Simulated scan of single mutants.
Amino acid sequence: MGIVGSTIKPFQNTAFQQGKDFFDVTETDIAGKWAVFFFYPADFTFVCPTELEDLGEQYETLQGMGVEVFGVSTDTHFSHKAWHDTSDKIGKIPYAFLGDQNHKLTNSFGVLREESGLADRATFVVDPDGVIQLVEITSEGVGRNAKELVRKIKAAQYVRAHPGQVCPAKWEEGGETLAPSLDLVGKL
């Protein structure tokens, strides 16, 4: 069953975020907003801090686009805080980290590696209706690119705001879009 186009399931997870106390996040907190759920295998690892830092560098841009960001692993919110307090890269990240030690959120997105209890390296973009619009899953050793994620979210937001239009490959904001029709069949 495809996950793109499906609605996220109810959840409640405790978060850690720089400058805040621990707090709970549920699906109602993102209702009416765009959200990124950025799953990674574990705190205190190797590829994870590089891509989490990269995403942190795009956080202000994403916030300006109306997008909230959540880093998610099967660690606890306490582990997230400890990592934040001891890592230069993680210590400067402004977005929230969700603890998922019971694996419910990771399971509901279908990215739990049951044999290890860790999450896959996976990104989900959820629209304001709670519908998953984008999914990216990579192997353990392949980090993601936050600038490309921003580009994809801009495309998803454009398509949502402009029914009947689609964004071709390598589309950048302000670029030409397509209006699918019989007139285009065989001409692209």
Results as ranks from 00 to 15, higher is better:
residue 101 Q to A: 09
residue 73 S to F: 09
residue 13 N to G: 11
residue 35 A to Y: 05
residue 93 I to W: 07
residue 170 K to Y: 02
residue 103 H to P: 13
residue 141 G to M: 11
residue 103 H to Y: 14
residue 95 Y to G: 03
residue 133 Q to T: 13
residue 11 F to P: 14
residue 137 I to Y: 04
residue 149 L to M: 10
residue 152 K to S: 05
residue 162 H to C: 13
residue 172 E to D: 01
residue 87 S to V: 07
residue 85 D to T: 05
residue 12 Q to V: 10
residue 39 F to Q: 03
residue 52 L to A: 08
residue 177 T to R: 01
residue 93 I to N: 09
residue 134 L to A: 06
residue 107 N to M: 08
residue 145 N to A: 09
residue 70 F to G: 01
residue 124 F to T: 11
residue 132 I to K: 15
residue 117 G to R: 00
residue 152 K to H: 06
residue 156 A to G: 12
residue 104 K to I: 10
residue 101 Q to W: 09
residue 79 S to A: 11
residue 164 G to R: 03
residue 44 F to N: 07
residue 142 V to I: 15
residue 112 L to I: 10
residue 185 V to Y: 07
residue 47 V to K: 05
residue 181 S to N: 12
residue 42 A to V: 03
residue 151 R to M: 13
residue 78 F to S: 01
residue 34 W to A: 07
residue 43 D to F: 02
residue 18 Q to P: 03
residue 37 F to R: 10
residue 116 S to W: 02
residue 64 G to N: 05
residue 186 G to Q: 02
residue 183 D to W: 09
residue 84 H to F: 10
residue 167 C to I: 11
residue 99 G to M: 03
residue 115 E to H: 09
residue 173 E to T: 06
residue 115 E to I: 08
residue 97 F to D: 02
residue 72 V to P: 14
residue 186 G to S: 04
residue 138 T to V: 03
residue 72 V to K: 08
residue 76 T to I: 06
residue 67 V to K: 06
residue 128 P to D: 08
residue 113 R to G: 02
residue 171 W to A: 02
residue 101 Q to G: 10
residue 39 F to K: 06
residue 140 E to V: 06
residue 84 H to A: 11
residue 95 Y to S: 05
residue 77 H to P: 01
residue 150 V to P: 10
residue 39 F to G: 07
residue 4 V to F: 07
residue 180 P to R: 07
residue 28 T to C: 08
residue 62 L to C: 04
residue 89 K to W: 00
residue 132 I to M: 12
residue 123 T to Q: 06
residue 33 K to V: 04
residue 142 V to N: 06
residue 151 R to F: 09
residue 181 S to Y: 12
residue 154 K to D: 08
residue 85 D to P: 05
residue 111 V to M: 13
residue 150 V to L: 10
residue 57 E to Q: 12
residue 102 N to K: 15
residue 49 P to A: 10
residue 163 P to Y: 13
residue 182 L to Q: 13
residue 14 T to G: 07
residue 63 Q to T: 13
residue 174 G to F: 00
residue 63 Q to R: 14
residue 13 N to K: 09
residue 9 K to R: 15
residue 67 V to C: 06
residue 160 R to C: 07
residue 79 S to V: 05
residue 157 Q to G: 05
residue 46 F to M: 08
residue 84 H to N: 04
residue 187 K to M: 05
residue 164 G to V: 02
residue 134 L to F: 15
residue 43 D to M: 01
residue 98 L to M: 09
residue 135 V to P: 03
residue 164 G to A: 03
residue 85 D to V: 14
residue 114 E to D: 04
residue 171 W to C: 04
residue 90 I to C: 03
residue 145 N to F: 11
residue 104 K to R: 12
residue 163 P to R: 15
residue 121 R to D: 03
residue 55 L to W: 11
residue 16 F to Y: 11
residue 93 I to M: 08
residue 75 D to N: 12
residue 76 T to N: 12
residue 101 Q to L: 14
residue 5 G to N: 10
residue 7 T to S: 07
residue 89 K to D: 06
residue 3 I to M: 15
residue 26 T to E: 03
